[in-house]
Amino acid sequence: MRTLIYRFFLLIGFLLLTLQLMEYISIQGNTPDILLILVIYISHKKGVMEGQVTGFAAGLLEDIYSIELFGIHAFVKLIIGNLTGLIYSNFTADNFGFRILLGFLASLIHGILFMIAKTIFESMDVWYYVTNHLWIKILYTTVLTPFLFLFLEFLEKRFGEQ
């Protein structure tokens, strides 16, 4: 129960950070996807089930406040959570480089899935999105991933499962 509450507040906290603070650290309007980092952190640490549920929940919260197609973040983060959980099941490596790679791959797949879904269900200028937003977002998220992992580990130790 405690874990559930902790995760809930973690999600809310990261959502609020995304909504309120990210604009101050944006680069050309692009912000790091800290909710994605949270999802891959939990998936990496807890596995497929928790990863996909957290991914879906985080995405859904993001969708509520996003002007994008409703459900698209839930869809993308669900898959990311699931895939990252699969990695957890098959790889035990956990170092700085791995976290960077994880962040990069997750951001990349997230971006690709986002574009696919957006193209299918709405319309999108893919080239413009890739050249003006996606690569910056991937880089920004990738760089931030290991540091946020450390912060989440710290929080986990303080407030998470004992």
Binding site: Q52, V53, F56, G59, L60, D63, L69, F70, G71, I72, A74, F75, L78, I79, A117, F121
Partner: peptide, 9 residues
């Protein structure tokens, strides 16, 4: 959850 999210979209 996949079906749910796709349905939302």
């Amino acid at each position: 959850l996949f079906i749910l999210s796709v349905s939302f979209m």
